[in-house]
Design a protein around this nucleic acid. Structure first.
Lengths: 213, 213, 213, 213
DNA sequence: CATGAATGAGGGTTCATTCAT
DNA sequence: CATGAATGAACCCTCATTCAT
């Protein structure tokens, strides 16, 4: 392709990325409703109107951002998962990746709940971007799914021993991770990733070590 | 006190309660920003303006509601906790109570994240009601705290065997519970409380039964 | 009905009327697009936001106004039409009524063409108020229709003698009237209603008195 | 002159013409306010910004177009007017020319009313192009004026017999023509030019053939 | 000359809150 | 206390116009 066109495309993509970076910062601080397009624009070094050259509206910015962040995490999780290692180590690596990645992004991810169409996912049809939204929801499910894969593999190899559905346990794990992220968020600073990861893995591994039952 | 005054106070309190009931329903469906005072008013059988006779503003309604719901749960959790029973059973009872109680309220509790000042708890000072808000945050911490109590007791009695801080594990447990509530919410209906509770308790008890380590 | 309710309804209707009066003035001066809701509000003595208590949006104001004006004219035309009189006199009376009524309203009526959905009536479906609009279009047709009635009656009684379709001639008559209104508008003042009416009637009666054919 | 310069001038003029052609189509469909420069540009095969190389702004495009269309019609009317023929035939020819010419342009001419400065011609001074606009207004008057010429000639030669001012009757005739164009526009298709012309001429010739008076 | 990108200015609409009755 | 009505304050989005390449 014409190198000039290529360059312009690249520039355009770069600018789109800058806008999302700015948006992530502002959305993370204020949530969907409370962020003004103007804040994002200012943060990105554009005028408000310019944003419309790159995204059709506020919703599109939010959803594009959410999708981008999600894809990044899924990609990192994929890389973290090494079949050569034992499964518990894989889980540990994945948790660490989430903490590490979220180090930059988690505040935003926690504001997903402030997206109108996302409240209960119930009002998705009210979004002008229901397709984008739908796609995002599907992406969201991939994270527990990756954990479930490792759990299944670990049980098959005899490393783990549990009766419950792997999908349920995977969900529990993400819940645990989210609870940590939330507490970090309330403290306004991240905790010690290594310690926290070790703690979680220990808990996942043996629970509270109940003697009965 | 003058019985007439008493009656009037009671009536007033009843009306405040009705407003909160209405608010819970609407906030639960739409989140903080998307619910309009008018919706709450209509649901409560008042006119929008009348709400101001009972609460100073929208934030006050939200925070009062959040606090009330929280108190109810804490109260129920207290009742569920029976020192005569073994600790795991207590944990199970507490989880069941949360599911049962949230059966009515959980949708609302999940919208806490849509409350502006609550996003990251970061902007608390921007709320006109920082005191109310502060109190609510403290209340929020009581739930994991109740779990921690049981965990500590269980460990002391030899029922449980874990090295981590009980507070951390308590937080994990609430994270697990929240993850279940979230998945119910996305499905738009509650799951089977008994089965889910059993699953969670099993997981908490022994984790994934890791053989290594 | 409760007299208080009645009174309040009356007040409300009166205010709606005041808004339409203000709207007529501003729309007439500036056309649909160029009039700002704020101008109408100011002219009516309201704040911009208050208009929304009475009409759902700008389009609704415009269409309601257009319909009201139309109904008034149709009503007056009906009264002007006296079967006892001879038909040409009826036509004369009707024309005079239009001029007299339009004395207040014509400037607005000429701005009908500035209404987006009304341009060519082609984009009616793009209006949020296609029903209101449809109704209005139907109303618009009633004016030529009233002229057509008189023409038919006059031909039946032998007063008139023409071969063409009465509906076509009725349309010509409205065209003639509109051309006069337009020229008045360009002059920024009305002409002499009596003289103009007489001129038109004379023309309608015998055309240019062509000798040939 | 340098032939190269000549060629470049010609090319430039051609492009200006293409832009006006595109503008006519879009203005005709949507009216002044609802057409966006971008639509015209796309229709003309240019980018929005390029239009500014040929016209100073949107108003200039509209007015230039209006003037061009007007001149074309006036020119055609002049050609249609043959002093050798009898006057009624000349009128008929002129009407036919308008219909034929407007076959391509009428939709646009009817949108003149959507031009802000043109609403009532009242706000002419608000236009940056009051000179262009003024010139256009004067051009507009030439059409009735041409009709008036024929009418005067016809009366002088005894072909016609009317007392009214020829200018008034000329205005009526244009009103009649416009009413037909409007009805065609509402129907979204042109009618039969020959039949319609004959009908109008018949009406103009003898009106409704009133017996009284 | 052509154009993608940038932007100022502006308008319609929403809604929490206030006020008069 | 209840409420219909009024409104200020925002905010999203559009678009004609400008500018750098």
């Amino acid at each position: 392709m014409d190198p000039k066109v290529l360059r312009e495309k690249a520039v355009r993509e770069a600018k789109r990325g800058l806008i999302l970076d700015a948006a992530r910062k502002v959305f993370a601080e204020r949530g969907f409703h409370e962020t003004r397009l103007e804040d994002i624009a200012a943060e990105a070094g554009f005028s408000k109107a310019s944003l419309y050259n790159y995204y059709t509206d506020k919703e599109a910015i939010f959803l594009s951002l959410a999708t981008r962040e999600l894809e990044r995490i899924v990609e990192e999780l994929g890389k973290a998962n090494d079949p050569e290692r034992n499964s518990l180590e894989n889980i540990e690596a994945m948790i660490r990746v989430i903490f590490a990645t979220f180090g930059e992004h988690f505040a935003f991810m926690l504001t997903l709940a402030t997206f109108p169409a996302g409240v209960a996912c119930a009002r998705m049809h009210e979004s002008t971007h229901s397709v984008l939204f739908q796609k995002h929801i599907e992406g969201l499910k991939r994270i527990p799914s990756l954990f479930a894969d490792v759990l299944v593999r670990g049980r098959a190899s005899g490393e783990f021993c549990f009766d419950e559905d792997a999908a349920d346990i995977a969900r529990y794990i993400t819940g645990i991770i989210r609870s940590v992220l939330l507490s970090w968020r309330m403290d306004r600073k991240m905790g010690d990733i290594n310690k926290e990861t070790a703690r979680i893995v220990a808990f996942i591994a043996h629970g509270i070590g109940a003697q009965t039952r």
